[in-house]
């Protein structure tokens, strides 16, 4: 179970990316986090495994408080958190198998890692996971030989092979075409069920979120303005997420809908790899 309590992040530039986000993610639910560009979606995800250091608040994973851990303890804790990235972030010059097995690095010695000597059960698991993501037979290809969709599958395999307690996905579909996007979402949903772990997915394509998520978190200006089952995401809620809280009072539903759609489109264009801003 992942729990964030009053999670705050203020960047050195003074931008307050998260203003105090509290939520709980449990079981094997698929949680989609939506919101406009710069709302703090990436910051939230990256704070959980402390790739970005939160300013304030608590993060608990199965009871242990991640925010209180020292550097080496945090390294050990990261083994329990799988992460999938927008730009896949594969090590381009390594093979598919090396990329997948790097998910096991937290469990092997430096010397074994240097010689690419992973325990047989790790290798076995890597083969299994490659099969799950539909890349069996590709283990000796170099990552830079693969297509975008295939690369994202390797990225997912690397996270799953960790046997994490939770999976974080930061805009996993933003660099993919619609078909691959659906395939990746489907794969993530399967994994949540099969591994029995929760997944938090940052996503700006609302229809994709609605199609696959059990629950929606809506972020606006660093504030959690919506937290509820996907069914509850009506036009009004979308309006609050994308236009801010007071917009719903001044606009009727039809206007709100077109605005939401426009937002989704313009965001798609704007939300490319500007990781620093998000």
């Amino acid at each position: 179970m992942l729990e964030t309590i009053d999670l705050r992040k203020v960047y050195p530039t003074g931008d307050e990316a998260l203003t105090g986000v509290s939520t709980t993610v449990d079981g094997n639910e698929i949680v989609a986090m939506i919101g406009p560009s710069g709302a703090g979606k990436s910051t939230f995800i990256r704070c959980i495994n402390r790739l970005t250091e939160p300013t304030d608040g608590e993060i608990r994973l199965d009871g242990s408080e991640l925010t209180a851990l020292g550097e080496s303890e945090m390294k050990a804790a990261r083994r329990n958190i799988g992460m999938v990235f927008q730009e896949y972030n594969l090590v381009e010059r390594l093979t598919v198998m090396e990329n997948v097995l790097s998910g096991r690095l937290g469990y092997v010695s430096n010397w074994a890692a240097l010689r690419r000597k992973f325990p047989p059960e790790d290798v076995e698991r890597a083969y299994d996971v490659l099969e799950t993501v539909g890349l069996d037979g590709m283990e000796n290809k170099r990552a830079d030989e693969l297509s975008g969709g295939q690369r994202q599958r390797v990225g997912i395999a690397r996270a799953v092979v960790q046997e994490p307690k939770i999976l974080l996905a930061d805009e996993p579909t933003s660099s993919l075409d619609p078909e691959s996007s659906h395939a990746v979402m489907e794969l993530l949903a399967d994994i949540a069920a099969e591994e029995d772990i929760p997944i938090i997915i940052n996503i700006h394509e609302v229809p994709l979120a609605v199609e696959y998520a059990d629950r929606i978190l809506g972020l606006h200006d660093g504030e959690l303005v919506f937290d509820g089952p996907t069914d509850g995401l009506d036009e009004n809620a979308k309006d609050v997420i994308y236009r801010g809280a007071d917009a719903s009072e001044t606009t009727n539903e039809a206007v709100a809908k077109t605005r939401t759609d426009n937002n989704a489109i313009s965001e798609q264009a704007a939300d490319k790899p500007t990781a620093a801003g998000d």
Partner: peptide, 15 residues
Amino acid sequence: DQVEAIKATGGSTFQ
């Protein structure tokens, strides 16, 4: 980005 991904798996600094 590639470095960060390895960091996220919980690898040691050397790894």
